[in-house]
């Protein structure tokens, strides 16, 4: 088992390095000259030759003339910068946001908090609905309920999230006027403590509903399929033949075995909602990671965008390793074949 974990971890590090290198070189394709941007304000106070010397100096300090791999290593914190110090990602230096005029590490926590806050609600709601529904439809296969849910779930996963958002806004914010159309807090309000929390909750309810609705379709289908597979197993028949109560058969025998594929799906779905929340956040003007990413790209604040990208990559890699480990833990065959 240990060997298996180690192997997966090594793979992950490898994948991480390759993906980040890819990202880093992509960002380097963007035509920009940070050194020029930094010396530009001093253009009027310096003589032309001084200015040029200053520009060259800063270029050297930033290491802009080095080959891509060296710059990547420096950015990663695997190679020393011009001062001979290691100051990169591994040392906790995520870069500097040109738009917010402060280090990226100080910009990110607030939006990340909101995104995670929102996604926790979505997760609880979505799982709370889809798991019981999936089990119910699997048990009562081909019933009217099952067929209805099947059709609705196709509709659910066929409609893009921004259309769901538009319809929800129309229903809840425009027609019923229950929730606000957009924003994070009541304009002009200055709440603190519990009041601020309720205000935030009131504003994120609609986005949470949208995200939940968007994930219902596919999740219900996965749970149902996994459950049907488990219910058709011999041990379920044996349990029923022994006279075990149906509830115990379903929840104890079948559901436990259906859990493994469901966990896989839940984890990759959880990663997916981070991507999905990009659209929701920008539709509802919520100050989350996704919207920050889009804003960073609009504002040409590429170091910030790169850091957010990194966040997404790390989240997806961690998710993947959890999937692999839980598989390896539960299913011994996986360990042997890999």
């Amino acid at each position: 088992m240990l060997k298996y974990i180690l192997k997966r971890l090594v793979y992950m590090v490898f994948v991480f390095l390759v993906v980040t290198l890819l990202m880093y070189s992509l960002y380097n394709l963007i035509p920009s000259d940070p050194a020029r941007a930094q010396v530009e304000p001093m253009r009027n106070t310096l003589k032309p030759d001084q200015y040029e010397a200053m520009y060259k100096q800063i270029r050297l300090e930033m290491g802009l003339d080095d080959p891509l791999l060296v710059r990547y290593a420096r950015w990663m914190g695997l190679a020393p910068n011009h001062l001979g110090k290691y100051s990169g990602l591994l040392q906790g230096n995520f870069g500097y946001s040109n738009f917010f005029k402060k280090p990226v590490i100080e910009v990110i926590p607030e939006p990340m908090k909101y995104t995670i806050f929102m996604n926790i609600f979505v997760t609880i709601l979505a799982l709370g609905i889809t798991i019981p529904l999936g089990i119910k439809t699997a048990v009562k296969k081909d019933s009217r309920l099952d067929r209805g849910v099947q059709v609705i779930s196709v509709v659910g996963y066929s409609i893009p999230i921004h259309i769901i958002a538009l319809v929800m806004i129309f229903l809840f914010a425009v027609v019923l006027r229950i929730f606000p159309v957009m924003g994070m807090k009541t304009p002009g309000s200055n709440y603190t403590g519990m009041q601020a929390f309720w205000d935030l909750l009131y504003h994120v309810t609609l986005p949470v509903l949208v995200l939940t609705f968007a994930s219902l379709g596919s999740m219900t289908r996965y749970v149902r399929a996994a459950m049907i597979d488990a219910l058709s197993m011999d041990y379920v028949r044996t349990a029923r033949a022994k006279g075990v109560r149906e509830k115990v058969v379903i929840y104890s025998h079948a559901w436990r075995n259906a859990l493994l594929p469901v966990i896989t799906i839940i984890i990759s779905w959880f990663l997916g909602i981070f991507g999905g929340s990009t659209i929701t956040e920008s539709t509802f003007s919520l100050n989350g990671m996704g919207r920050l990413n889009i804003q960073a790209l609009y504002n040409k604040d590429y170091e910030l965008a790169l850091a957010i990208q990194l966040f997404y990559i790390v989240v997806s890699l961690i998710g993947r390793i959890i999937i692999d480990l839980s598989y390896g833990l539960v299913d011994p065959r996986v360990r042997i074949t890999k």
Partner: peptide
């Protein structure tokens, strides 16, 4: 491994960068 690498790239954010580039 190639599939894994491509799978690890979050899709929407990557597309956003590419179109920015």
């Amino acid at each position: 491994r190639l599939c894994e690498i491509i799978g690890a790239i979050p899709f929407l954010p990557l597309m956003l960068i590419l179109s920015a580039i």
